[in-house]
């Protein structure tokens, strides 16, 4: 690099220089990178412990350049609770998908948030079970075809998709709950800001924090990546509104985006 120049873009220290297993067009990679950048920017990578889920991000312990723990399906918030209570000086985050967090792990996330555990949850909602091959998730959209809802999600039989950010924002315990997306560059920029706020609340010892991130699954949705991004905008965003739902100092109930 010529002297006097400043790097404007580089590989995050908190992300290992390895090839991921994610499918082409999947936005997990974008979200990984944003989490890693935030850890770098806050200077906390060396005291961070991440918790990987069961789901597409199951191998994320191979991708973050930090100490990691692999949890059983849905239990990442409980595992993170154990780590944080054992070592409050550590920065602890979980990285979970919609099946992991909103289905099998509903109990763990609700109580972790309600206890106000000072951890950060990165909740990736792509409206489908990816790793197991495209089955219906609790966040699958009405009418959406999956391998276990071959005629489309029938809400009269399985109910409407679960809006986790909204549910969590009803808890009286102070916390930071927000929803972002990564289907457009501008949304990614905003989402990274949400992640930075979430981790900052933890670093400051303030509260539990969760950022739900609408993500794509071109493979299991059966869409080319650019159409998958459009599907997020047209189908998911109207049902899963983007914004900040709850802040520790913004009152205890904020059912609508602020």
């Amino acid at each position: 690099m010529p002297s006097g120049t400043q790097p404007v873009f580089s590989y995050p220290e908190a992300l290992r220089d390895v090839t991921t297993h994610y499918c082409p067009g999947c936005t997990h990679g974008v979200i990984h990178r944003m989490v890693a950048e935030v850890l770098d920017e806050l200077g906390v990578r060396q005291r961070t412990v991440g918790v990987s889920p069961v789901g597409c991000a199951v191998l994320s312990y191979n991708y973050f350049a930090a100490d990691m723990q692999e949890a059983s399906h849905g239990r990442a918030p409980a595992v993170a609770t154990g780590i944080k209570r054992a070592r409050p000086d550590l920065v602890v985050f979980t990285y979970q998908g919609d099946g992991d967090l909103a289905s099998i792990g509903m109990s763990e996330i609700m109580h972790c948030a309600n206890r106000g555990e000072k951890i950060t949850v990165v909740f990736v909602n792509n409206a489908i079970y990816g790793m197991t091959g495209g089955q219906m998730a609790p966040t699958t959209m009405p009418g959406q075809i999956t391998t276990t809802s071959p005629l489309g999600r029938d809400v009269s039989l399985v109910g409407e998709p679960i809006r986790m950010a909204e549910i969590l924002s009803t808890l009286h315990t102070p916390g930071f709950v927000a929803r972002g997306a990564v289907h457009r560059p501008l949304e990614s920029v905003k989402t990274k800001d949400l992640l930075r706020r979430a981790f900052t609340y933890q670093v400051e010892g303030r509260c539990f924090s969760l950022v739900e991130i609408l993500s794509t699954c071109p493979t299991n949705w059966g869409l080319p990546p650019h159409e998958a991004c459009e599907w997020v905008e047209k189908t998911m965003v109207p049902y899963y509104p983007l914004g900040v739902f709850k802040t520790p100092d913004g009152g205890d109930r904020a059912p609508r985006p602020l």
Binding site: Q69, R75, A78, A80, G82, A86, E108, H111
Partner: peptide, 18 residues
């Protein structure tokens, strides 16, 4: 904990933190 499922995974995290 919220359940024995929760408790047993909390000890996983804490033991993993040494």
């Amino acid at each position: 904990a919220e359940s024995e499922v929760g408790a047993s995974n909390m000890i996983y995290g804490a033991a993993g933190a040494g």
